[in-house]
Simulated assay, not measured.
Amino acid sequence: MSDIFQSAALSEYQKSASQIATGKDSLVALKKSYERYDNLIAKAINDSTTKPACKAGCAFCCHYKVEARAHEMLLIRDYMGKTFTAEKIETVLAEAKANAAIIRSITPEQHLTTNLKCALLQDNQCSIYPVRPFRCRNFHSTDANACEQSHNDPHNMEIATGMIEDVAIYADAHTQGFEAAAEQTGRDARIYDFNTALIEVFTEPNALKRYKTGKKTFPNAIEVI
Rank of each mutant, 00 (worst) to 15 (best):
T113V: 15
Y13V: 08
N115D: 12
E12W: 02
C126V: 01
Q6I: 08
L30V: 03
A8D: 04
L30M: 03
N39V: 12
I199M: 02
D166P: 01
I159R: 08
L208P: 03
V28W: 05
I4W: 00
G57K: 13
E109Y: 10
M73V: 00
Y37M: 07
A171I: 00
I191K: 04
D38R: 08
A17I: 07
I102G: 07
M163D: 09
T142I: 08
E35Y: 07
A221L: 06
Y79V: 10
T185F: 00
Q19C: 05
E200F: 05
R77E: 00
A168K: 13
Y34K: 08
A173P: 11
S26I: 02
A86N: 12
A181H: 02
L121N: 01
I102Q: 11
T185V: 02
A144W: 02
N39D: 11
A8T: 14
A189R: 05
I128C: 05
P130M: 05
L10E: 11
I159T: 11
K117E: 12
A56D: 15
A94L: 13
A9H: 09
F5I: 12
T113N: 13
K212G: 03
N138G: 08
Q122N: 07
K43D: 15
A189T: 06
D38A: 12
L74S: 11
A42E: 15
D166Y: 04
Q110E: 15
A197I: 00
A144K: 08
C136F: 12
R132H: 09
T107S: 15
Y34P: 05
T113I: 14
R190P: 02
K24W: 06
S2Y: 03
A197Q: 01
I45Q: 15
T113F: 08
A29F: 09
A29C: 11
E87V: 09
N99E: 12
I222L: 06
Q19L: 03
Q125D: 06
T175S: 14
R36M: 07
I76S: 06
R210H: 10
R77Y: 00
A53Q: 09
F202V: 03
A197R: 00
L40P: 03
D78P: 03
R210S: 13
I103N: 06
S150M: 06
A119L: 05
N115Q: 14
G214E: 12
H63W: 04
V224G: 02
T50R: 15
I106G: 11
S11K: 08
Q6A: 07
A96M: 10
N115S: 12
E90N: 09
D25K: 04
I128K: 02
R104G: 07
T22Q: 06
A94S: 15
S11T: 13
V92R: 05
G214P: 04
V66W: 02
V131W: 00
N99H: 08
Q149I: 03
D3W: 05
F60N: 15
L75Q: 14
